Amino acid sequence: MKFYVTRHGEAVWNVDNKICGRTDVELTEKGYAQAEELAERVKDYHIDLIISSPLQRAFETARTVANRYRIPLQIDERLIEQNYGIYEGKDRQDEGFLANKRQFAYRYPEGGESMMQMAYRVYGFIEDVKKNYPGKNVLVVCHGGVCRVIRSYFTDMTNDEFFHYYKENCQIEEYEL
């Protein structure tokens, strides 16, 4: 079973270098073009199912691929980006945000979520896909933080590698389930 993972197309706040988290921001024109390019790149992947985060930047990316090839598309809340609490909308280089990002068991202030909480839900999602779709090729469309956690499921990473891991918009990684 192939498990393909991609980050959504460019969103408005990506251009402004803002932390998107769970804020539901839309794709830019470039983001829609990236989604079209993604659809072209996966044409020979024999994808049976696409599962997307409910946030519009991921869903619109997923829908572009699904519509082109008439692939079933599902939404899974567990793929929503990490809740960054007070850092939503702030600059990605904010010192407080970067310090918090290194503390895996620490919740982001004011209603945020820890990396460990996010890993719990994302790992559960992967286990459910493995159990429910054996032999199927699945494309997951989600967010940078979720992509980082998915990579850690399949690949051992040091804390520093995990912290610095970054996936470009609409870049695909392939895993075997």
Rank of each mutant, 00 (worst) to 15 (best):
K30T: 11
I80E: 13
I47N: 04
G85N: 10
A33G: 03
T64C: 13
R41C: 01
A66I: 01
E77N: 11
I51N: 09
I19Y: 06
V12N: 04
N83G: 09
V65F: 07
D48G: 12
Y32N: 03
I47E: 02
R70A: 07
L55W: 01
D24I: 02
D44M: 05
S53I: 11
S53R: 11
V15D: 02
L49W: 00
E36A: 14
V15A: 09
A11D: 13
H8E: 15
A11R: 07
L49V: 01
A35T: 05
N83V: 00
R68G: 03
L49R: 02
Q82N: 14
G21T: 10
N14Q: 13
Y84D: 02
W13I: 02
L27A: 03
Y45A: 14
K18F: 07
K18A: 07
D24A: 03
E60Y: 02
L27S: 05
L49Q: 01
V65E: 06
R41D: 11
E81V: 13
H8S: 13
L55P: 00
G21W: 09
Y69R: 09
K30L: 12
H46E: 14
A62L: 11
A39E: 02
E36D: 09
R63I: 02
D16K: 15
V15I: 15
K30H: 05
E81R: 12
G85V: 10
D76V: 14
